[in-house]
């Protein structure tokens, strides 16, 4: 690691509450393709940034706001400016098909940031979102996750399908819409029909997915 000067040291947040790595898993999609979901380190952030960039000007379905914010969040993580953040990639044969991120507020509380499905039509977003909830509840052992939605699709997918509790008195870092909460009880209720995948990822499959590649095409851009 490069030498860090004293000032930079002052600027970096301590890492406290994302002390468990998310173990990679894979899901067989409807096409029979295998999507690998894995946590990435700072070294892999540049390609994740490149992958969201083309969506920054897609107004439809709020891709622009989600892409711009996710870009800033991943950059913040990469340059040590967000505390306790994590980023997961979804890849098929190494190609990035979706990205999710979030962070830990404290040992008991998680905060969901954003979910982007780059490849459409295979319900990848739902799988990636479920993976980060799995991380908060089953690996970080947190009690609750704060969630907001920025699009009607997000609202339908998360708030309604997971029956999230409304908690408008708590402010989510993303601001804007009122906060909702996924509690452990709700997670346990919905997990069987929302969360799937297998571990460990066979070595060969994992090798085919590292390093990650940029998406070939963006249907959203058409």
């Amino acid at each position: 690691m490069a030498l860090i000067d004293k000032m930079e040291e002052q600027l970096r947040p301590p890492e406290e509450f994302v002390n468990v790595e998310y173990p990679a898993k894979y899901i067989t999609l409807a096409t029979g393709e295998k999507m690998v979901i894995r946590q990435i380190s700072r070294e892999e952030c540049p390609i994740a940034l490149e992958a969201v960039k083309p969506l920054m000007d897609v107004e439809r379905d709020f891709y622009d706001i989600v892409a711009v914010r996710m870009y800033a969040e991943i950059l913040g993580y990469m340059r040590y400016r967000v505390k306790d953040e994590y980023v997961f990639l979804g890849t098929i044969n190494g190609e990035i098909v979706g990205i999710v991120n979030g962070r830990s507020v404290n040992a008991q509380l998680g905060m969901s940031y954003h979910t982007i499905a780059i490849r459409q039509g295979l319900r990848l977003g739902a799988q990636l979102f479920a993976a980060k909830m799995e991380y908060h509840f089953d690996f970080l052992n947190q009690d609750e996750v704060l969630i907001v939605a920025e699009s009607p699709n997000g609202f339908k997918r998360w708030m309604i399908e997971y029956e999230l509790e409304s908690r408008p008195e708590v402010w989510h870092e993303l601001g804007g819409v009122p906060t909702y909460v996924l509690t452990r009880a709700l997670w346990e209720k919905h997990k069987p029909v929302k969360c799937t995948g297998r571990r460990p990822v066979p070595e060969e499959l994992l090798a085919a997915n590292i390093p990650a590649r940029l998406p070939g095409a963006y249907a959203q851009k058409k």
């Binding site: 067989t28 096409t31 319900r123 029909v193 929302k194 799937t196 995948g197 297998r198």
Partner: peptide
């Protein structure tokens, strides 16, 4: 509209089928 072919196994019998084909 849809230009992909689902795998019969993936959408019916696979371990993940119940979730990816809800």
């Amino acid at each position: 509209h849809i230009r992909l072919v689902p795998s019969l196994h993936a959408i019916t019998e696979d371990e993940d089928a119940d979730v990816i084909n809800p």
